[in-house]
């Protein structure tokens, strides 16, 4: 910018959050709750995008949308109590204000009718960004089969356990697994990567959406690639420390990409090309 330009447009402030109201809080597990937030102006967001969510006095954190944007009226965030800000969010009650800015990021480019099969792989809280996709397929169906492989720490840690039946009746093959089972658990135990044989998916024609801890993402992507899934159809969303969400603060800079503005959704091809994961 040249200092010259005479016209002084009152630039809007990209860091200014808008106030939202917490309509509903649903406790999902010991440390994870689902917050439904409404705002005065309509919201438009796509699966895989995120908002910078803040509590004044505690700070801001990026949280991906856990709901499908259908009627513009609300957005849901699935929040795990992990630090100062998420702790502060958890201390809020229904009716309290939560401050938002966004949505940011590219989001998943999910066609309502994907060609071929769809494989969703989630680990822990990583189910949250995939939930809108699941909801979409559960509602509208898909051309091929849709399989969800979802790993959690223990039976009590399965977020959205209450929705699994809904998803199943929507035609989604939900395979649950836990690291540490107990006697009440009727699903599998072990890592998601041990359960490939259970996924009824034509790997070479399928598209995969993955979200979870970095170590899981890495091994899942590597496996799927070996099974012949094209790298550009292995899609994941990356987590990173972020302070701004708009490509300025530098925290999420990885390789030549900003996870906040160039991502957070990347294909395995991009991840390899830009070495985004170490």
């Amino acid at each position: 910018m040249r200092t010259a330009s005479g016209k002084r447009t009152k630039a809007e402030n990209i860091y200014l959050p808008v106030s939202g109201r917490i309509e509903e809080i649903r406790k999902k597990t010991e440390d994870v709750s689902l917050f439904r937030v409404s705002t005065a102006s309509p919201l438009r967001y796509t699966p895989g995008q995120f908002f910078m969510v803040s509590v004044w006095g505690a700070g801001e954190v990026p949280i991906s949308t856990a709901s499908l944007c259908e009627d513009d009226l609300f957005v849901e965030f699935c929040v795990r109590k992990a630090g100062t800000v998420t702790g502060a969010i958890h201390s809020l009650q229904e009716g309290d204000r939560l401050w938002l800015r966004g949505p940011y990021g590219n989001g998943f480019a999910v066609g309502r009718r994907a060609n071929g099969d769809v494989l969703l792989v989630a680990g822990g809280i990583g189910i949250a960004p995939l939930r809108p996709i699941i909801q979409m397929f559960a509602k509208d169906g898909s051309a091929g089969s849709v399989t969800l492989l979802y790993g959690s720490k223990g039976p009590q840690d399965v977020v959205f356990m209450d929705e699994v039946q809904v998803w199943r009746s929507g035609g989604i093959d939900v395979i649950l697994t836990v690291d540490r089972a107990n006697c009440d658990w009727r699903g599998s135990a072990g890592l998601v990567t041990d359960l490939w044989h259970r996924a009824r998916v034509d790997f070479s024609r399928a598209t995969a959406y993955i979200c979870g801890p970095e170590i899981m993402i890495k091994s899942v992507m590597r496996d799927l690639s070996l099974f012949g899934m094209p790298d550009e159809r292995i899609i994941t969303t990356l987590e990173a420390h972020m302070k701004c969400g708009v490509g300025k603060c530098g925290h999420c800079y990885s390789g030549p990409k900003y996870i906040c503005t160039d991502g957070p959704v990347f294909s395995y091809k991009e991840i390899k090309e830009y070495s985004l994961l170490g």
């Binding site: 509590v55 004044w56 505690a58 502060a88 201390s91 809020l92 009650q93 309290d96």
Partner: peptide, 14 residues
């Protein structure tokens, strides 16, 4: 300083 915010507490009532 980016913003100042008055009349808000950490756990903010409606």
């Amino acid at each position: 300083a980016m913003f100042s915010c008055r009349g808000l507490s950490l756990s903010d009532g409606s």
